[in-house]
Design a protein around this nucleic acid. Structure first.
Lengths: 67, 67
DNA sequence: TATTGGTGTAAAGGTACCTTTACACGTGGA
DNA sequence: TCCACGTGTAAAGGTACCTTTACACCAATA
């Protein structure tokens, strides 16, 4: 069971850079990059902040890649 | 910003013990207890497993307690 | 009384998440 | 060419998540 996300798609659709997004979210660019690249999953708290940032429901940003 | 959950309510509404739930989810009872008591938030992956276990949408199990 | 079931919690160890600092590469514009 | 911008990634350190092992308390029941 693998959690995937659409952070990169959402971000690019809004023409926002990783830098700008990191500043607005108050996290580091490295964290955004790692999440976009699937190196690790965000914490539940950061997940909530991402939902609010993109203003989308949970299911639209995170999904399961079955094994 | 504080993430809260309704794991205990969901579990009790289904008359399931922490022990049984832990076994069925393949995690430890301590983890369930800690999440119910708010000692820490589940990882995103475990959050997904909890949603599937209770068969509820994200918003019904997790919510934000604003500061 | 003794036992069982359900729950609360602590300590120690491993891994995941997130930070700071830093270096690197490609592209586009001055 | 030079520089700025956007992105990728690594290393080290701190905290959060989750495990195993263990002990404890309370309520119900034999």
């Amino acid at each position: 069971m693998q959690v995937n996300n659409k952070v990169r798609e959402m971000r690019q659709a809004r023409h926002i850079t990783q830098v700008k997004m990191a500043e607005e979210l108050g996290i580091t660019r490295q964290t955004i990059n790692a999440i976009e690249k699937g190196r690790y999953n965000p914490s539940l708290e950061l997940a909530f902040r991402l939902l609010a940032y993109f203003d989308v429901p949970f299911e639209q940003l995170f999904y399961i890649e079955e094994e």
